[in-house]
Design a binder for these strands. Structure first.
Lengths: 250, 250
DNA sequence: CGAGGTCGTTGATCTCAATCAATTTGCCAC
DNA sequence: GTGGCAAATTGATTGAGATCAACGACCTCG
């Protein structure tokens, strides 16, 4: 599915890469952008082939995964609205990108986009920053995969989804109550099998740990994949996370 | 320890970030660069404080690590010659950087370097590329931490050290025999405890798996931390790695 | 020389999560 | 409604790696 776009009405106008661009630059980028929609479980990019486009997520969740020769799988990242998909300046991105929900992307043809980036140092700077943040997030996840217990992993995952939900919400409301206030209702964007692949566990262990957190009174489950978090502070403790000090980004 | 430098005689002149710069630019950068030497186990950057400098590794190995509140530790990356240390454009880098061996850095004061980077888009482009590579490496490591067995992890680690050694060597000799030729002698840059923290294992398991690989005839151990690899192809199989296809970088 | 140290190996035992195996729940089409 | 199917839960058992413990190799320092 393809369609032309207008940046003015774009939902992620102020969060995405293009947020740093001038009016003229936006115009330029608008001219070559197009939208694509992906159904849940639709593959966006694969392992080996050279991707022919580059995209910003407007809505939906994308999972990045790697697969070993014998079928073992590991999800190496989740991408949400305003994150980007596709590796610029390389002929290959070494993992799969798959729609976890319905996904809308703001796309550019690879070559055109790369030329544009080289013309607009601010845009490249913004992408660089974003990539540094991704690298920090990947390294934080390595602690989870290398050192955390199953329960800590599940709590960390719920926490991640909470944070992402708040980040999106905060964009509209620009005020967020502190951790530990009222109940929080969130929707998990992944199946049990996907959560297992993200956390380095099996689906049975994931299921059991959800049950355990529920019986410990830390969460409740609701219709579909909804989760009720009673106290985010407690959740973070169970997750074994550092108190989220100021990250000090410029 | 501090000393002035000359880029002309720099060992990593052609591999490092500065490789993309013009003669004038090199001069400019040379004027503000200084060298620092760190002893093994000396801390280069910590968790929280704002780093006041930015550095390129000229020689030695640096480990990047994170620690949980209760002391559990995870090494989230190893940096070798020509890699860089310190996070530009942020007031904090969220992990420790510690010298694993004697380390020589080519340093710049943070502010000066950031200004320089913004003036030289090629330099920023090069750093961006490098960061993308780091991100890919981090994600590949997530597969190891989430899905590989202890034996696969050890084999993967040895393989990593082999590749890094070859990358450095290849810089001088510019020809490398294919995988699976003669015996290869390498020196592990980490203690057992560090290897355990890198692989998400305990020292005992690391030790047992080395013994196991030895008795399986895949490696031999020698004086100090030296390892003899008989057939890199076999090692890669044991590591559960994909055949290293062309990565397709620009 | 022996004392004290770190580092690495090996053995015995335990435990957490994987594996194997039923069920159960929810959802869609008909 | 009922059949069919994927997703999720729950139980029984196993096993890989952690933990606890002892010991050997190799330092340096007195």
């Amino acid at each position: 599915m393809l369609s032309a776009i207008s940046c003015d009405t774009c939902a992620i106008r102020h969060r995405a890469l293009c947020g740093v661009l001038s009016a003229e630059e936006i115009q330029k980028i608008n001219a070559i952008a197009f939208r694509r929609t992906f159904a849940p479980n639709e593959m966006i990019l694969t392992d080996r082939e050279t991707p022919e486009f580059f995209g910003n997520i407007i809505s939906g969740v994308v999972k990045l995964s790697k697969m070993m020769a014998d079928g073992r799988q590991q999800i190496v990242g989740l991408q949400f609205a305003s994150d980007f998909i596709g590796r610029p300046f390389a002929t290959r991105n070494p993992f799969f990108a798959e729609a976890a929900s319905e996904v809308v992307l703001c796309c550019f043809r690879k070559k055109q986009f790369e030329d544009l980036v080289r013309e607009m140092p601010d845009l490249e700077h913004r992408m660089f920053q974003h990539t540094l943040d991704e690298l920090d997030a990947a390294r934080a996840w390595m602690v989870l995969l290398g050192r955390k217990s199953a329960e800590e992993r599940i709590a960390s995952f719920i926490n991640l989804v909470v944070e992402r939900a708040q980040a999106s919400a905060g964009c509209q409301s620009n005020f967020m109550p502190d951790a530990g206030a009222a109940d929080l209702r969130i929707e998990l964007p992944l199946t049990r099998a996907e959560i297992a692949d993200y956390l380095g566990l099996t689906i049975e262990t994931v299921s059991r740990q959800f049950t355990r957190l529920k019986s410990r009174g830390i969460i409740d489950t609701a219709k579909g994949r909804q989760i009720l978090v009673h106290d985010v502070g407690v959740l973070r403790d169970v997750a074994g996370e550092e108190d989220p000090v100021n990250l000090g980004l410029e």
